[in-house]
Design a protein around this nucleic acid. Structure first.
Length: 307
RNA sequence: GGUUCCAUGGCCGAGUGGUUAGGCAACGGUCUGCAAAACCGUGCACAGCAGUUCGAUUCUGCUUGGAACCU
């Protein structure tokens, strides 16, 4: 009895359009707690339609953290999410023994539940140096330098994936030690237990839900939302399904109907990538769509009952 | 009835007498600071039949199915 039971973090995840938001809200209401969004796009302001962010009504039913708090040109990352979410959880767990994370940004979920290794924040100077190296001398030059600085990682990276190569070089230069030596990949000890849930839709049905949701987004004014967003600037936050297709339409490189069809298609592709990620996560409890809430509650109750 | 043209994998779309077009979709995968990102892997398709040829998706003929035009 000396050891207090750890609080419980319920992670409501799953592919896009699988009903995470409503399930999370039901659970938050049932258990009287708050929701932390693990969604790399809902965190931005001014994108509620295209990111299917919780509506004001939904947000009045359960408090949502990390939704609509960042300007479109703001920088965010999985590491920041880890930090922010841990801080918020600390507050929630001060008065409750259960909290909910809801979102389909899988790397965010992993960052929070498993933890990232400590790495230096890349300075502007380093970032600009690597960027200019890439722009003036190409990927080859970046690879060549990575090979010198971190031969071990050079040997294992996907060299075609410029983004990761650049990142590895940035970190190595910033830290003064090879990136690979910082990548321990060790799971962090957390002050809470984790229960991961996802609704297991047959793919056909999921795709159907996606198609219908895209139509609804268009009806709700996605075009205008996108127009306003791009008027502010073309930021990474808008390199997102729903917005990049609208951009092509605005540019005149794609007609409206094609753009809409592409949004649906790319959303399906996105859902598949999420499923690929989810498939290898053995901790996930897959819920039957017709009884998801009841199954979730019974899993949670069981967890809460355990010492 | 006649003349001409076309016929490529789910779709689009190049091409060649003998090595893989490519794109999109589909399916599978990678994933430790932009992740709704970025990247990787998987399809021996050439309408059917016969012929020419060492060899035909590529040449010839016929058949079938389209398209256009003419009487």
């Amino acid at each position: 009895m000396a050891r207090a039971r750890k609080p419980l973090l319920v992670v409501v995840t799953g592919p896009t359009a699988s009903g995470k938001t409503s399930l999370a809200i039901e659970l938050a209401c049932c258990y009287g707690t708050e929701i932390i969004s693990a969604d790399s796009r809902q965190i931005f302001k001014d994108l509620p339609i295209g990111t299917a962010a919780p509506s004001p009504e939904e947000r009045s039913r359960a408090f949502h953290h990390l939704v609509g708090i960042l300007d479109l040109d703001g920088y965010y990352s999985a590491a920041r999410f880890e930090e922010d979410a841990l801080g918020i959880l600390n507050t929630i767990f001060a008065t409750r023994d259960i909290a909910i994370v809801c979102g389909g940004s899988m790397m965010y979920v992993d960052a929070l539940t498993r933890g990232f290794d400590d790495m230096p924040r890349v300075s502007d100077a380093t970032r600009n140096y690597v960027l200019s190296l890439l722009e003036t001398q190409g990927t080859e030059a970046v690879l060549a330098q990575l090979e010198i600085v971190d031969p071990a990682y050079f040997a294992e990276v996907d060299r075609a994936n410029t983004r990761r190569v650049v990142h590895a070089l940035e970190i190595s230069l910033e830290a003064g030690v090879p990136y690979s030596t910082l990548r321990k990949g060790q799971r962090r000890e957390r002050p809470f237990r984790t229960l991961k849930l996802a609704v297991d839709w047959p793919r056909e049905e999921l795709f159907d839900r996606i198609n219908r949701r895209v139509d609804a987004m268009i009806a709700d004014g996605l075009e205008e939302e996108a127009r306003r967003a791009f008027a502010v600037g073309d930021f990474n936050s808008l390199n997102t399904v729903g917005y990049k297709e609208m951009k092509a339409y605005f540019n005149g490189t794609m007609d409206f109907d094609t753009a809409v069809a592409r949004i649906a298609k790319n959303t399906r592709v996105y859902a598949k990538k999420q499923l690929t990620w989810l498939r290898r996560d053995s901790e996930i409890h897959w819920l039957n769509p017709t009884s998801a809430l009841a199954e979730a509650c019974s899993l949670i109750d069981r967890e809460l009952a355990e010492e």
